[in-house]
């Protein structure tokens, strides 16, 4: 199959970018979207042009490194999917596909389609952990946790940190990402002792990084590859109230 790719090219963080058109031939429906980009890059090399910079690593939907805004949707036209899981069979022969980087002030563009998501790391750094040192753990089964609680924690913990929630949110809010982590740890008995500080510190960092407010459009939970529910944000808010009252 043959498609036209309109791809955002931008040399560096402060350079001006633009959408450039590339006609890509010899694609098959079995190819993943990233493989189509790989293919285009090989052609660019042979034409003595610089390759398009985009990110990926595991290519099986779990590392969270890939992330492109494809035809107006984070990670492409399907719900709950990463870019690397998108295949060319989702497009028709002759389609024009627009590919843009994640857009948010807190995710500055590094080059072309690559953005800097280190803001997420810094949010995690503000308390998304349990402050127990290696070697201090009690016997695992001495902490009983009901299946219900554990499953719920796992639902929230499944976040892959890709940033699709921020990318798709009209306010560039990181509330889904932050709430998922807070709820994962705060709902487990191990996370209780630091729960209030965790909620307060992580949300404070979220604001400091320049993310916007959550206005519950619900776009994030649709684009989230792990289908993390927006209810997490409401739960985080409840935790914030509790933390504020308790402190």
């Amino acid at each position: 199959m043959k498609v036209t790719l309109r791809i955002w090219r931008q040399e560096g963080p402060i350079d001006k970018g633009e959408l450039k058109e590339y006609l890509v031939d010899d694609l098959t429906e079995d190819m993943s979207f990233l493989e189509a980009l790989d293919h285009l890059n090989e052609q660019l090399v042979l034409k003595n042009e610089k390759v398009i910079a985009y990110e990926y690593d595991c290519r099986e939907g779990i590392c969270g490194q890939c992330g492109l805004f494809i035809n107006g949707r984070a990670h492409g036209p399907h719900d709950h999917m990463t870019t690397c899981q998108l295949h060319m069979r989702s497009f028709a022969d002759g389609d024009t596909i627009t590919v843009e980087p994640w857009r948010a002030k807190a995710f500055p563009i590094v080059k072309d389609l690559i953005v800097d998501r280190s803001a997420f790391d810094r949010i995690i750094g503000q308390g998304a952990y349990i402050s127990a040192k290696t070697g201090t753990a009690p016997e695992a089964n001495s902490i009983l946790i009901s299946k219900e609680v554990s499953d719920k924690a796992m639902d929230a913990a499944a976040c892959i940190g890709c940033g699709a929630c921020v990318a798709t949110c009209k306010n560039a809010s990181a509330a889904l990402f932050t709430s998922a982590k807070i709820n994962h740890l705060n709902s487990l008995p191990q996370g209780k002792p630091e729960s209030h500080h965790r909620a307060l510190d992580m949300t404070k960092q979220m604001e400091k990084e320049g993310f916007g407010h959550c206005t519950f459009t619900g776009a994030c939970e649709v684009e989230c590859p792990e289908g993390i529910s927006i209810t997490n944000i409401a739960e985080m808010n409840a935790r914030l109230i509790r933390a504020k009252v308790m402190n």
């Binding site: 016997e139 695992a140 902490i143």
Partner: peptide
């Protein structure tokens, strides 16, 4: 065995039985 203890303490949501054990 200590490694499972360690990760449980770090908040890894390992699968559990209804009774709460791993």
């Amino acid at each position: 065995a200590p490694l499972i203890d360690h990760f449980t303490q770090q908040g890894v949501p390992f699968a559990r039985e209804y009774g709460g054990v791993l």
